[in-house]
Amino acid sequence: MSRRAVAVVLVFPLLALLLVVSDSPYPSRPGPPRDAPRALVAMGDSTMSGEGAGNYEPGTNGENDNWCHRSRDASVWKTRVAGVGMAFNLACSGANSEQVGITDQVRNTEGSQARQLAEIARRYRVSVVVVAVGANDDPRFADVLGTCLRAWIERRADCSKSMADEWRARVDRMVPKVERALRDVRRVLQDVGYTPRSYTLVLQSYAAPVSPDLPLDLQNLAGCPLRTGDLSWVGERAVPELSAGLREAASAAGARFLDLADAGRGREACAGGKKPEEEWFTRLTVDFDGLRDEARARHALQESFHPNARGHEQFARCMTDFLATTARSAACRADGEGNLRAVTDRD
């Protein structure tokens, strides 16, 4: 067979294939349009939603029993990422890892945050996902503080004495749940066309809201009614061990990690004494108007010992600093001017 004949034999099948392709074009590329605005998405629980910062978005302050308390002063609205102009806050006060992941569970009238993320990711180009979750799983940190509050009221022994032996086990049980939630975040993004390298996933930990370094005249219902031993345990053991567990979960899921365990040092609730405006956390906060309403009464203390607007601004400063690096992990530390910055192992 001549070379021309061989060429004809090879070319005709190729032409036929091109005709088939032209009649059946490739399906559209999954994910958002190429010119979609880039977005930052916050997910998780109260420390990310903005609980304690006030200025809550309509519909999340008890309306129709939605107590997500998403604040317009939450850190997500103050975090800056180069080239990213949109932000979304999916976090909900009280959420646990299951609610962040793929689930049919409903809390505060809202369902899976991961599924909500998928809807956003189809319309916007999600560049960064920041997650704060885990404290409402087995550690049940809010309940722990409530138990310690009752110990102060009833003049019982430090509640930390009963918590200490089981705390590490609680944290250990939490770790795989947080890891699963982070993997669910990756899964929904993959399903709509994202690759792991097309976005940044960050897990942040929690800052200790209280410290034993507070005036004795505020160690009461006017400020921080917790026993000294319990205050020490929260800052020196409970929060650091919680952060260590979250670091483990982040590493297992391939997420970056920002450690906030010491972020509020010296700025905890009541640490400012007569200058509460210098604190980054709410003191004991009671919604007295809510106490008159049976439906709202059980949420009357909900804001207590959460970061306030100043705290969220500082956490956002640290997150902004961290996202500008390529470091896998960092810790928030105050600089010479008292502002938080992300300190990596290289710093």
Rank of each mutant, 00 (worst) to 15 (best):
I102G: 05
T103I: 04
T103V: 07
Q105F: 13
R107D: 08
N108I: 06
N108Q: 14
Q113A: 08
Q116Y: 03
Q116L: 05
A118W: 01
E119D: 14
E119W: 04
E119A: 15
E119K: 14
E119M: 12
I120R: 02
R122M: 14
R122K: 15
R123Q: 15
Y124S: 10
S127V: 01
V130M: 13
V130Y: 11
V133C: 13
V133Q: 09
G134K: 08
A142G: 13
A142T: 07
A142Y: 06
G146P: 03
G146K: 06
G146S: 10
G146C: 10
L149N: 00
L149A: 12
R150V: 11
R150W: 13
R150H: 04
R150T: 02
R150K: 12
R150L: 15
A151G: 12
W152H: 06
W152F: 15
I153T: 05
E154Q: 11
E154K: 04
R155I: 00
R155M: 12
A157Y: 06
D158A: 15
D158N: 14
C159N: 06
S160L: 05
K161Y: 11
A164Y: 04
A164L: 09
A164Q: 11
E166A: 15
E166F: 02
W167M: 12
W167V: 07
W167P: 00
W167I: 09
R170C: 02
R170S: 14
V171S: 05
V171N: 03
V171I: 13
D172F: 03
R173K: 13
R173T: 00
P176R: 10
K177M: 13
V178L: 11
V178Y: 08
E179P: 01
R180L: 12
L182M: 12
D184S: 12
V185W: 09
R187H: 11
V188A: 05
Q190F: 11
V192A: 07
G193I: 03
Y194I: 02
T195G: 15
T195H: 12
P196G: 08
S198P: 02
S198W: 07
L201E: 11
V202W: 03
V202T: 10
S205I: 04
A207K: 00
P209R: 00
V210Q: 06
V210N: 03
V210M: 09
S211C: 05
D213I: 03
D213G: 04
P215M: 11
L216H: 09
D217S: 14
Q219E: 13
L221R: 04
A222P: 00
A222R: 13
G223M: 07
P225T: 08
R227Y: 01
